[in-house]
Simulated assay, not measured.
Amino acid sequence: MSRTVIASDAAPKAIGPYSQAVQVGNTIYTSGQIPLDPATGELVAGDIAAQAHRVFDNLKAVIEAAGASFSDVVRVGIYLTDLSNFAAVNAVMTEYFQPPYPARSTIGVAALPRGAQVEVDLVLVRG
Score class of each variant (00 low, 15 high):
Arg3Ala: 12
Ala49Gly: 09
Pro35Arg: 03
Ile15Phe: 15
Lys13His: 15
Asn90Cys: 08
Val123Pro: 09
Val118Ala: 14
Ala110Tyr: 09
Gly108Pro: 08
Tyr96Arg: 13
Gly127Asp: 15
Thr81Asn: 04
Met93Ala: 04
Leu112Ala: 09
Val92Cys: 09
Ala11Asn: 00
Val5Thr: 08
Val120Ala: 12
Asp37Trp: 06
Ala14Pro: 15
Ala88Trp: 05
Ile63Lys: 01
Phe56His: 10
Asp57Ile: 10
Gln23Gly: 02
Val125Gly: 10
Asn26Lys: 04
Tyr96Thr: 13
Val24Asn: 11
Ala52Cys: 07
Gly46Trp: 13
Met1His: 11
Tyr29Trp: 10
Val5Cys: 06
Gly115Ile: 15
Gly41His: 02
Asp47Lys: 07
Arg104Lys: 14
Asp37Arg: 09
Ala10Thr: 08
Ser31Asp: 04
Asp82Tyr: 06
Ala7Glu: 11
Ile48Asp: 06
Tyr79His: 10
Asp9Gln: 14
Ile63Glu: 01
Tyr101Ala: 03
Ala14Ser: 14
Ala116Lys: 00
Ala66Pro: 00
Val89Ile: 15
Ala66Arg: 05
Gly41Cys: 11
Leu124Asn: 05
Thr81Asp: 06
Lys60His: 08
Asn26Cys: 03
Ser105Thr: 02
Val123Thr: 12
Val5Met: 03
Ile63Tyr: 00
Val120Gln: 12
Val123Cys: 11
Asn26Trp: 09
Lys13Pro: 03
Ile78Arg: 07
Tyr96Ile: 09
Val89Pro: 08
Leu80Pro: 15
Ala61Pro: 07
Ala11Lys: 06
Thr81Pro: 04
Gln98Arg: 03
Ala21Asp: 00
Thr81Cys: 02
Gln33Leu: 13
Ala116Pro: 02
Ala61Trp: 07
Gly108Trp: 10
Val125Tyr: 03
Val92Leu: 05
Pro38Asp: 01
Gly25Arg: 02
Asn58Asp: 05
Tyr29Pro: 01
Ile63Met: 01
Ala21Leu: 06
Phe70Val: 07
Thr30Val: 11
Val55Glu: 04
Gln23Thr: 12
Asp37Phe: 05
Ala52Leu: 15
Pro17Thr: 02
Ala21Glu: 03
Arg3Asp: 09
Leu122Met: 04
Val24Phe: 00
Glu95Ile: 00
Gln51Lys: 05
Ala14Met: 11
Ile63Cys: 02
